[in-house]
Amino acid sequence: MANKKNKHSRRQFFSKTVPVAIGTIGGVGLVAQSCQQANNDEEKISLLSADGQLVEVNKSALTKVPYKPVPPDEARKGIPGKHFVMVVDLARCRNARKCVKSCDHHHQLTPDRPFIKVLRMQDNKTSAPYWMPKKCFHCDNPPCVKVCPVGATYKRSDGLVLIDNERCIGCRFCMAACPYSARVFNWGEPKHQDGDRPYSPETSIPSQVGTVEKCDFCPDMLRQNKVPHCITACPNGALYFGDRNADSVTNGSETVRLSTLLKDKAGYRYHEELGTEPNVYYLPPVDRSFPFKEAPEGQPS
C-alpha cells in the first residue's frame, strides 16, 4: 500500500475490518497495513495469531465481513409488531459525548455533521443548566414526512422515520419543517465514506451529496435484535431504548418497564404543544448523577 494512502485510510480500514480487527487482539488491523508483502499477484498479509504463530493470509479473505443491509424498498416496511422508543435520563448525562462518537463512527460521519447533538439547556436564568442529548425524535406525527414532495422521508409501522437518499431531491423542506432541527444536509461531497457498501436507508451509508440525513435509530441493529450504538456507548446508562408495544426499555445493563419509568420519573417530551408526538422521552434532570460542568474549550457549542 502506498505511503500516502496509508495515512488516510486508517479510519476507513478499521471501519471495514472492525469485526476481524477487534476479534484478533494480535493487531491484525495494523499488521495488515504495515507488513504487507509487495510484488505478489495475490496480495498477502502476514498475521500474528494469538498462539504466536506467523501466518500468511490472502488480503481478500481478511477485509470486510460481508454485511447485507436491507434494500431501500424493503426498508420502507417496519419491523412487524414493534414500536420503538427512546428515553433519555437527563439526570445521568454529563456531556461525555460517547454517544456522539459511536454514532459518528458507525454512520461514518465527520464531526462537522453529527446526527446527535448534546445541547446545553437552561430553561430560565435561575434554573440550573443541564445537558440534553438530542437525536431525531421519530415523531408519530412527523412534520418532515408531511412536507416531503417525493416521499423520500417516510414513517414506518415500527415508528421509525427514515430517509431514502436515493430518492431525496435536496429541497430541504423537511429541514425547514422539523421543529427540532434534527436533520443534517450533505452540503458538499461526504468525506470518509465506505462507498462500496450497498446503500440502505437502514444504515444511512453511504451518504450522498445534496441529500438530507439524520439519526435513524440504527434499524440494521434493530433487525438483529440489538439496540442502537449510542445506547451501548453511553457510559452512564442515560439512554434507554426499547419497544413501546412490549412496554420495556433497556439501557444495556438494566431493563425497565417504559410506563413505570415514565410514571416514576415524570417523563416528558420536548414541545408537546407542537403536536408532533415524539418517540423520544426525557426524564427531568433531578437528583443528578453528576454536577453540571461547562463544556471544555474547543468543543463546538
Partner: peptide, 17 residues
C-alpha cells in the same frame, strides 16, 4: 438551482406526493 439534486427533478413527477 436551490435543489441539492437537480438531476432528480423528475422524482417530483414519478414519486410526487
Amino acid at each position: 438551482v436551490d435543489m441539492g439534486r437537480p438531476d432528480r427533478f423528475l422524482n417530483v413527477v414519478i414519486y410526487g406526493r
